[in-house]
Amino acid sequence: MNQASITIVGLGPMGRAMAAAYLDAGHRVTVWNRSAGKDGDLVARGAHRAAGITEAVAASDLTVLSLIDVDAMYSALGDTALEGRVLVNLSSDVPDKARKAARWAGARGAAYLTGGVNVPPSGIGQEGSSIFVSGPQEVYEEHRAALDVLAATDYRGADPGYAQLYYQLNMIMFWTAYTGWYQALAVARANGLTAADVLPYAGYTADSMRGFYTHTTPAIDAGDHGGADARLAMCAASVEHVLHTAADSGVDTGILAAHAELYRRAVDAGFGADGTPRLVQLLTQN
């Protein structure tokens, strides 16, 4: 692989991990961050510290942005000349903002790819890590090798919003599960248990979720709402038990109450005999 020159804009934990991965791969790396003091170790390893954003973008054909969101890109780049440059925005945001950003970059003569990074900073450059990418396929193919240094890229098509859509779908599953872990630990602590007491069972539950996803996917895509395995009325009763266990333990029930309300709504709408795939339809209705 040719050792390309790559600029990293944004040196939070993720941006620093990306710059380090490129240095490890032998690339020429230019770094820039709005606030000073985050690039010392990278510069010591051979990265070039740009004096400003204009120098940073001019230093490389490919600029990788790792910022808090898309709005931070506008703020960081300002009126910087972008003609002929390639921007790869790996900052988290919503799909429509990614599409707007691609139009903004295109109007200024730059090619634009969106990315959604599926690992924390510690996963950058590691086997098994992945990044959703979307935008013009020819731009992706030209720079794929450089992006694969960070993580295996999963191209999701020309729509610049799709990488963020897939990423946010993963985040929906991640954050609800992660918050559920802490909800369970709050109830456990209120009853004299520790996180270590719960961990073996949490691992089993997390592993079992793949089976639920696999089992329900064909029914959801086929519009099959049969409830032979898990009727919504039965599920609603179980969720109520969870809610009351938390309440009886003196733990905040806001998150669980929202879940219970969804299942109550399903039963009240006459879907009690249906299976859980019916929830997808219920959630998409106003």
Results as ranks from 00 to 15, higher is better:
V31Q: 09
M234H: 10
G26T: 05
G275C: 10
Y204G: 13
T276G: 00
A236T: 02
R264Q: 15
L11V: 11
Y140T: 02
R99G: 05
W32C: 09
P277Y: 08
V43S: 01
G211L: 07
Y204L: 15
A44P: 14
G37N: 13
V198I: 14
T253D: 09
T194D: 09
V267P: 10
D148M: 11
V187I: 14
V133W: 00
A101E: 05
D61C: 08
M14D: 05
I6P: 01
D71T: 04
N2Y: 12
W104Q: 03
A105G: 12
A177R: 08
T153L: 13
A107M: 11
N2F: 08
S60H: 12
V31S: 12
A258N: 15
G78V: 13
S60N: 14
R103D: 15
T30E: 13
G106E: 13
S122F: 00
R156N: 08
T245W: 12
A21N: 03
S130E: 06
A219I: 02
M73D: 02
A190R: 00
G125V: 09
R265I: 09
L199P: 05
V149N: 08
S75F: 07
Y22R: 03
I172S: 03
R278K: 07
T153W: 01
H241M: 06
G10S: 07
A163M: 04
R144W: 01
R278T: 07
S60M: 10
A59P: 11
R108A: 09
T205L: 11
A158I: 11
T205F: 09
I131K: 05
E240I: 02
R144V: 03
T153N: 07
V119S: 06
A152I: 03
R265C: 04
V133Y: 05
G223C: 06
R265Y: 04
G123D: 06
D79N: 06
I8V: 08
G254K: 03
V94K: 02
F132L: 12
S66H: 06
A101T: 13
A98K: 04
L42S: 03
L11M: 13
Y162L: 14
T284Y: 13
T245S: 10
A202D: 06
V239T: 07
L67H: 03
T217P: 04
S91N: 00
A110W: 00
N286P: 15
G12H: 10
Q3P: 00
L185A: 15
A25W: 02
V187E: 02
V29C: 06
V139P: 06
L165T: 13
D221C: 12
R99A: 09
N191V: 11
P218N: 01
R156S: 00
G26H: 13
L262A: 14
N118I: 05
T30S: 06
Y166W: 15
G211P: 06
L279M: 12
M234L: 15
D39M: 03
S92V: 09
G223F: 02
G115F: 13
V64A: 11
G203M: 11
R264V: 09
Y166V: 02
